[in-house]
Design a protein around this nucleic acid. Sequence first.
DNA 1: CAATTTATGTCAACAACTTGCCATATTTAG
DNA 2: CTAAATATGGCAAGTTGTTGACATAAATTG
Lengths: 152, 152
Amino acid sequence: MPANSMSRQDTSNKLFFRLFQAVNIIHRTGTQALKQFDISTQQWSVLGALSREGCEEGMTVNELSDYLLVSRQNLTGVLGRMERAGYIARQVNPRDQRSRHVILTPCGSEVWQIIQPAIADFYQASLQGISEGRQRHTIALLEDLVGNMKQP
Amino acid sequence: MPANSMSRQDTSNKLFFRLFQAVNIIHRTGTQALKQFDISTQQWSVLGALSREGCEEGMTVNELSDYLLVSRQNLTGVLGRMERAGYIARQVNPRDQRSRHVILTPCGSEVWQIIQPAIADFYQASLQGISEGRQRHTIALLEDLVGNMKQP
DNA sequence: CAATTTATGTCAACAACTTGCCATATTTAG
DNA sequence: CTAAATATGGCAAGTTGTTGACATAAATTG
């Protein structure tokens, strides 16, 4: 049976199943890598979002939701825990009293710096033996996939 | 700045961030696609695992855990809900009284058949404009990634 | 054979994700 | 300007993911 006899449906199936598997094990492995810093993978993603250039003034909950592709309601909980931990602060926007600017505290910035070596190790171990070309193919596919799903 | 100047670290970062985004939106979109059948994406994965050829006799919780890459403890809850819904049954293994064989009920098999068109539509919409070559590159990357993470 | 170790599945507690609903604030219509 | 529509964030309930602890069954070791 030649390798190319896999049907389109089989390919799609396999792709989504591997995504499912990968995410589960990434969640577990990533959580372990960050355990020593008392931080979750989702808190990592929030720290990363707020540490980007141009975010010195913070992001609103809606902007974070659009960027991370999780619901506002989910962020309420995550941000609450991060605020309690002292990593972020929520400031009411004087121009729009409904919205809050979520900003990194100095402690949050420090944590972001401190975890970088662990992140680098995590990347190195996970992507060992995987070519950058293949990584770029995957990035392109994921961006198209997200684009397709954002449509409605 | 040439396109290839992106550092290895930047590539890894982007890859994991896109994975994170993609999974969040896949979860949302997949849940919506299955909503009419009163089934979650995880229950879908369990139905798919048990519907494979060679699984007529069912799988143990440990086998499902190894296959789906989620914890046994998590499966306890998922399987409990699926049993209550009538999609699966848990049979004690006479050879080993600790283990239980999880098998599809006729109702579970029927549901699996019924959702196939919705799954096909979901695949079609998500992967629109994405070449099979790129899909295969991604599958290969994900398999290597999972392999790397299984190591310890 | 008895005692320890290992394997299996479950319960409990917690984080994170979803949707539905709501209070409040801003914007838009009339 | 008032009234309706929209936008923002949070609360609640439910599912899924994790780890730690446990009872029971099987396998190993003395």
